[in-house]
Design a binder for these strands. Structure first.
Lengths: 156, 156
DNA sequence: TATAAATATTCGGTTTTACCTAACTATTTA
DNA sequence: TAAATAGTTAGGTAAAACCGAATATTTATA
């Protein structure tokens, strides 16, 4: 077993890379079977990571004209993946946020990871599972300490 | 700490779900910044999971007409993400496979996971890293035993 | 050998979406 | 009131996905 932290991190990265390689990405294909476009998917991801956003902010992150963003969001609203509402403080602003269906769609991206995790754990002994649970707990503690405690991305 | 295997598996799934939630999916957005369409992405995923495939097979998995599949693959070939070649045994068949660039693009999907992993490990103590390395090794052993040892998806 | 079947491409046409600029409306600020 | 800000709408272009029908090309069969 390696001794210093850097080597250990490297080793873990390598190993987890091999794990990713061994698991087939069947689920992601399912996810993409919806009749959605890449521009729309990117907008959904922006709303997922950034939380509710004004139209101009979406346009700037997507790096397109404001009118283009309007069109993309319009299509997402029509699909009931996004809701659009006026900001009560400044009624010029339009705030866009994920609808429950939109959250579910994007959430499926993580759930597909969980699904893979099941295959990963299948067949382990009780001892091994205990050790894995310990490490998972430890990693969660670490990441929530690093991100400031509030896990979940802050989608209000 | 829970005692039985099922409860432990459940606990690990929950915990890893929270870890996924706490990590922002910034990278996936980067990935999608390419000027690629969802249909093209799905075709790439098919080739990644299934390996080299004939045109009719792609059409059937995508559930589109053969002529449509021809068009989609044509665009991928133009982007140099896929190569198309005739089968020497039956020269009616056209075999499509990922180009190195195509493999790299899809591989980036997993590498984005590795990138997240770095953030996950950042700040752990030496003891914690050792434990994490053990578990990673254990999971890799398990998954390669389950999938038959040959990790990598079989893209010839 | 002649004919049929299988595989894929090409063609013509429709629809959807993304994208831009310019003009417009509504709201807030100076 | 005038100017600035935030979005939408309109008009137009380009690309892509989709289909069915017609067309090679190759393989299988009568």
């Amino acid at each position: 077993m390696k001794q210093n932290k850097e080597a250990l991190v490297q080793y873990i990265l390598e190993t987890s890379g091999n794990i990713y390689g061994a698991l087939n990405p069947t689920i992601r294909l399912e996810l993409l079977s919806s009749d959605i476009t890449v521009a729309q998917l990117r907008a959904l991801l922006i709303l997922h990571t950034g939380g509710p956003s004004r139209m101009s902010s979406i346009a700037s992150v997507l790096d397109v004209a404001l009118s283009t963003a309007t069109g993309i969001v319009e299509n997402l609203v029509r699909k009931e993946l996004v809701v659009r509402e006026a900001d009560p403080h400044d009624r010029r602003l339009v705030i866009c946020k994920l609808s429950p269906a939109g959250q579910e769609l994007i959430g499926g991206l993580w759930r597909s990871g969980e699904f893979q995790m099941e295959r990963l754990l299948d067949g382990l002994t009780l001892e091994q599972l205990k050790k894995a649970a310990e490490v998972a707990e430890m990693l969660l503690d670490n990441v929530s300490r690093n991100t400031g405690g509030a896990a979940g991305g802050g989608v209000e």
